[in-house]
């Protein structure tokens, strides 16, 4: 008798758990679907922005804009130096620590002043 009562109670418990698990799954699946939709939407937005950015950053466009608006020109070979060619002054402090000072030689540009 007691066994039957006990098993009935267990059955009730199991039934309730099963029901809760089921509704839990439902809820989670809804959430998952929502998230998936949001991800898909965001991906679409990213694709649009990416395409737009790619279109706006076309080298042809950037070259034209930098030339027209910023007066930029290709850099001349005389303005490129390896790091070794830049004179560095090594200073020895009182404590004996080395201090490297970046000391480029800047020459005034006469052309700019004339304009």
């Amino acid at each position: 008798m007691r066994l039957i009562l006990l098993s009935a109670l267990i059955l009730v418990g199991l039934g309730t758990t099963l029901y809760q698990v089921k509704t839990g799954i439902d809820e989670r699946q809804d959430r998952l679907q929502q998230l998936e939709l949001r991800i898909a939407d965001t991906k679409r937005d990213i694709a649009v922005l990416e395409a737009e950015w790619a279109y706006l950053s076309r080298p042809e466009r950037v070259m034209t804009l930098s030339g027209d608006l910023l007066q930029m020109t290709p850099i001349g070979q005389d303005r490129i130096l390896p790091l070794d060619a830049i004179p560095m002054r090594i200073e020895f402090g009182q404590t004996g620590l080395k201090k490297i000072v970046f000391n480029p030689v800047i020459q005034p540009q006469k052309k700019d002043q004339a304009e």
Partner: peptide, 9 residues
Amino acid sequence: GRLLAGNLP
């Protein structure tokens, strides 16, 4: 990694 061909929704 610059985009050359992509898909637009």
